[in-house]
Amino acid sequence: MTLHHFIAADRDLPMGSFRGQTKEGLISIVELDQGYEMIKTKFSKPFVYEAIGCLHRPGNDIRALFSYINSNIAAGEDIEGYSCWDGEEDKEKDDRLDFFIDIKNLQLGKHVKLDKKKYIDEIAGMFYFEERQLVKIRK
């Protein structure tokens, strides 16, 4: 089975393949396939995309995703992320896993304060998307 990752925003986002700022990691942001339309019910935002990359473990693809987010949303905006197994798009999200990352205030979840100069590297070293977890990321 394949674990799919999705992101949602309040406006159109650029699609294509993107590397991290240090050229490490590679993600692709693609149009949502019609077969995954029901995933939109997990989000509060109207523009939903599939994020393709190894986002279920810490590492370079997480670094590339956060570099993408940092480059493509303005201060004060937020984006949502969600992951689920192929064929399980209709399963309820696990509210216990809801997670918040505040880039502006350098906060990862409730307990981790990030360094202003190294926050993307710190996120890439600690964070990953879990199955049926909604993640809100604010810049």
Rank of each mutant, 00 (worst) to 15 (best):
Q34W: 08
Y36M: 11
Y36G: 02
M38E: 08
I39G: 02
I39K: 09
K42P: 10
F43L: 03
K45A: 01
P46H: 05
P46C: 07
Y49R: 13
C54S: 10
L55Q: 11
L55Y: 04
H56D: 15
R57F: 15
P58L: 05
F66A: 09
F66L: 05
Y68R: 01
N72S: 04
N72D: 07
I73R: 05
A74I: 11
A75S: 15
E77R: 12
E80C: 13
E80R: 09
S83R: 00
W85S: 12
W85L: 13
D86L: 14
E88Q: 13
E89C: 05
E89K: 05
K91H: 14
K91T: 06
E92I: 15
E92F: 12
K93I: 11
L97K: 14
F99D: 01
I103N: 00
N105M: 02
L106R: 14
Q107H: 08
G109L: 02
H111S: 11
K113W: 06
K113R: 14
L114P: 14
L114I: 04
K116I: 10
K116R: 14
K116Y: 07
K117D: 15
G125F: 00
M126T: 11
M126I: 11
F127H: 04
Y128T: 01
E131M: 07
E131P: 02
Q133S: 03
L134Q: 07
V135T: 08
K136N: 11
K136I: 09
